[in-house]
Amino acid sequence: MGVTTAINPVEPLLRTDRMPHIWCPGCGIGTTVNCFARALGRSKLPLDKVAVVSGIGCTGRVAGYLQFDSFHTTHGRAIPFATGLKLANPEMSVVVYSGDGDLIAIGGNHFIHAARRNVDIKVICVNNFIYGMTGGQVAPTTPLGASATTAPYGAFEQPFNLPFLAESSGAVYVARWTVYHVQHIAHSMAEALRKKGFSFIEILAPCPTLYQRRNKLGDSLDAMRYYKERSVIKNGASTRDLDLGFQEEIIVGKFVDSERPTLQQTMDQRYREVLKDRYNGWRQP
């Protein structure tokens, strides 16, 4: 009986002294972290210059497991924290890694404003359609009809179409994948890491403990089967057409990859134009 002892290639990017992690068996978040580690390897970014910022929730724990300068902030406020971090230290690649409830419900206002400003941060949103950490409450992403502890008769509010929200708010890079699409996720993350500007990647992921079980959708393997069978890759699809229905077709792909000056570029340009040599640009602390 052989025992493999090869080191997992993503291990150097993880805080292995913090394992085991808190995520449930079958949770999709770990898969996305694996993709992220691979993407960083591909991106060739100097790892000391990467900072990861999370909010609160299951995905909010990602920052704590990654071996980078990392910040676990308050609920919904990872984006404005990251905005301050990036403006104060522009040489850092700043990644916000959080969940749908954190980024889009309590943090929704920050999300649209950061996209509008085109802050040069990468936002990775693991969307499991539900509040996991608090035990399965309805989210602004819960599909119509799906059950949650605070929507016991099924969700009756129209959920957000996140890629559409991101694009219409000003994001320059928008993609959506499911955790079935591991190669695509890693590729999109690597692209976003190289891109200047507000980049957004939505990753649909199973929450077997709460969403799957409560909605009688089986386990995570069933979720993967659903993602595999009902996902359609439509790169460049109009983000208007990306609404997600309960167990309906999922359109995935890269939808937006455009160019627009970042917040720092527009700020610098404005000051330089108006103030000329009186402008004293940001000096590294």
Partner: peptide, 19 residues
């Protein structure tokens, strides 16, 4: 910023960034 929630944490991010 868009509100005081954002302002009050942007300054903390900036502080960790060295400001």
């Amino acid at each position: 910023m868009e509100d005081e929630l954002a302002s009050s944490i942007a300054i903390l991010g900036a502080a960790w960034g060295g400001a």
